[in-house]
Write a protein that binds this DNA or RNA. Sequence first.
DNA 1: AATCTAAATTTTATCTATAATTTATAAACC
DNA 2: GGTTTATAAATTATAGATAAAATTTAGATT
Lengths: 222, 222
Amino acid sequence: MVKKKEDTIAIRISRALAERIIAGEIDPGAKLRQDHIAEEFGTSHVPVREAFRRLEAQGLAVSEPRRGVRVASFDLGEIREVAEMRAALEVLALRHAAPHLTKAILDEAEEATRAADKSRDVRSWEEANRRFHRLIITPCAMPRLLATIDDLHAASARFLFSTWRTEWEATTDHDHRAILAALRQGDIDNAASILARHVQRISRKPVKTASGAVRESFAIVG
Amino acid sequence: MVKKKEDTIAIRISRALAERIIAGEIDPGAKLRQDHIAEEFGTSHVPVREAFRRLEAQGLAVSEPRRGVRVASFDLGEIREVAEMRAALEVLALRHAAPHLTKAILDEAEEATRAADKSRDVRSWEEANRRFHRLIITPCAMPRLLATIDDLHAASARFLFSTWRTEWEATTDHDHRAILAALRQGDIDNAASILARHVQRISRKPVKTASGAVRESFAIVG
DNA sequence: AATCTAAATTTTATCTATAATTTATAAACC
DNA sequence: GGTTTATAAATTATAGATAAAATTTAGATT
């Protein structure tokens, strides 16, 4: 969380708010009041409004003219949507990245997989998982595609944290290893098809709501 | 071009600028100066800055902190990128939309194809073409996916107008008809694969530059 | 003539103040 | 009691002023 000196206040605020929304510190549907946020950050509300526009673009907030901005809410349908978009776009990125993947990159991706497997909490698992996915697709050198995928990963992380806010059980990620094995053999089709299935894997877990009732919660775990 | 009363000034400005950028009225790389634009629209620069953030999100402008905003420039690589992203995402959308496509929708799409074929200028061809694509995928009911595709269509239109600014020769769109035929037969796989090839068709045309030299210009024509 | 430096100008980013709208509250009415 | 209707409070959106950077211009120096 480096706050570069060159960054504008609006950018810093949007990053800070994005983190909170992803971490689930602000509930879906909650109102974001520009004056309150401005006061908290010790600024005027003008840069706050610009930060809102950035969050909107990432799909983390929704805004209605003159009626304010609220944290984007989500349901199972949107989780599926994000999973399918990720599958389509990450496969596309992987196919372009594959010819440029080096042994060094694949080794680093394997290291990320090990880090994910031994993570004791969701946050570090998510970080390692994202590192894996990013490593194998970045060499595609398609900036617009990568930016879109980044936003989808932010949404995924949000779903994940909302479901596994506290507890997390370590598992061995067989998919990641299978993808790496296929890539090492040069079998791109196989790697792509495992990846597609992998990011569409949606896991469910019973979660207690504030009222004491138990509902099913869902998240992308790939 | 309805300017809804409910819309905020920032939204109106971003729409107006987006149109100009897509139409090629402002050159790629040109600086967008907030005070000048504010003066032109008779406002202060605060809503102009918000409009800039929206354009940035659509990929129509790029901004560097404290150094201003400029119209996004593009090259053949980015055109290919947009084409491939469209192929991946429109196919995904079509697969989800297909079960909900009615005869009425397909008839309307066929009408859009006819309108495209008899268009005498790029603008109306683009409008009809976009209508076709939108009609067959909208029933997927995946708002995030559709929003992303819309931004890609805006980019496509920009490439198109930059190449065929003036002249345009009417052609018969066999792909659209083949897609509709496949959909009417319920052959979704076939429709999807024609669509994927269709939106990746990039056409080239020699274009005279300001200095008198002739360069090749490219655009997505699907 | 080319290049470096310093002042002048332009432009971006932010703040404070104000207008316009929406939301919340309370009184009046059926 | 519940529903309107007015009034007050909070909130969003914009304007105008100011500070901070970047860019340009002009002059000095080599």
